[in-house]
Computed example of a mutant assay.
Amino acid sequence: MEQTMRAVVLDEPGPADRLHLRVLPLPDPPPGWVRIAVRAFGLNRSELHTRLGLAQGVTFPRVLGIEAVGVVDHDPDGVWAAGQQVVTMMGGMGRSYDGGYAEYTVVPRSQIIPFRSALPWEVIGAVPETLQTAYGSLTTGLDLQRGQTLLIRGGTSALGLAAIALAKDIGATVLATTRNPARTTALSEHGVDHPLVDDGALAEHVRALVPQGVDAALELVGTPTLPDTLAATRVHGTVCFTGMLSNKWTVKDFYPIDYLPRGVRLTAYAGEAGDLPADVLQRSLDRIGSGELSLGPVHVYEFDDIRTAHQDLEQGRRAGKLVVRVGERGTEGTI
């Protein structure tokens, strides 16, 4: 076996041209860790924040990537057999240690989830972190129930589209936003009951549809729109702060009594691999394969096109999930 691999390295924060595709030594997993042969990885705002220098606790140079999908290549403890299909995410990947933007990645055994699927790797690569965050936001964050109304602020993001699909599966009535009027049709086609163009002052439009305010709201844009999202939510309704599409996540001089509408609850969600049950992952992959479930469009890039993919992510040029395909050595396609 070759003792080197290709990986995307960020030497220091900056524009997309700071991402370099390099040949690195093949990482050797210590006890308790597992080496994964990566077949695809999704792009996330988290990696954009790291590239822009907005993330804390990151040391450089660093192989980015908070998630990856592939097969077990080597488990020094013999717990996982080589060839087992797995996903991995979070736990410091791409920040405190090298992540998934590589042909191989080494992660703690505790943060891998096994599955079985014949779906193309680029399709599977769009699922893990997006599904984990959407599932956790709607269940742990909002405790969303059948028949409730849900507002999703940032509906055409990958996370927004996944949340729409899961919320409709639960049986909620979904209102979802986009800043681009041309994307409202795509929201309708994805199952949104009330697509809304976000002009920054949305509460009035929401209450024209739901006079008492929505039961639940998922805030994916960030703190600039959070007050307006709170204003669109009913008394005893809940807003879950999960995303930061605006790259702004703190509230300056936060005074709760002045900031929070009376009786509206504000919570937040961030999860790890252990927060996505293996049966939820498997069932979702099975339903994607059967055509019963769609988490939204997937835009696929080759490994050599990582800079273009990051530029598209930064500029919001694509609605849906961006995925980079990593073929097996000696092949040009997917498995």
Rank of each mutant, 00 (worst) to 15 (best):
E2R: 13
Q3S: 14
V9F: 01
L10N: 00
D11R: 13
A16V: 15
D17M: 08
H20E: 09
L21I: 15
P29C: 06
P31I: 08
G32E: 01
A37T: 06
V38P: 01
G42P: 04
N44I: 07
E47C: 09
L48Q: 13
T50Y: 00
R51T: 05
G53H: 10
L54A: 10
A55K: 10
G57N: 13
T59L: 10
T59W: 08
V71K: 12
D77G: 13
W80Q: 11
W80Y: 15
A81Q: 14
A82N: 11
Q84G: 00
Q85H: 02
M90A: 11
G94Y: 00
R95V: 07
D98H: 09
G99S: 10
G99R: 02
Y101G: 01
Y101W: 12
Y101V: 01
V107A: 06
I113S: 07
R116F: 09
S117F: 00
S117A: 03
W121H: 03
E122F: 09
I124Q: 00
G125I: 07
V127T: 09
T133S: 09
Y135T: 03
Y135K: 01
G136T: 05
S137G: 11
L138W: 06
T139L: 06
T139W: 06
L144F: 07
T149K: 03
A158P: 00
L159R: 02
L161Y: 00
A162Q: 02
A167Q: 03
L175V: 12
L175P: 02
N180F: 10
T184M: 11
T185A: 15
T185H: 14
T185V: 15
G191C: 05
G191L: 04
D193L: 08
H194N: 09
H194S: 05
D198F: 06
D198E: 12
E204C: 11
H205K: 15
L209M: 12
L209P: 04
D215H: 13
A231I: 08
A232M: 09
T233D: 02
T233F: 04
C240E: 06
F241K: 05
N247D: 09
P261R: 06
V264T: 12
L266T: 04
A270M: 14
A273S: 12
P277C: 11
D279L: 13
S284H: 10
S284Q: 09
R287N: 12
R287F: 10
G289E: 08
E292N: 07
S294R: 02
S294L: 05
P297F: 03
P297R: 04
V300P: 00
Y301C: 07
D304H: 14
D305K: 14
D305Q: 15
I306D: 01
T308F: 07
T308C: 05
D312T: 11
G316T: 04
R317T: 15
R317Y: 11
G320S: 10
E328L: 15
E332L: 12
E332Y: 09
I335R: 15
I335W: 14
I335H: 15
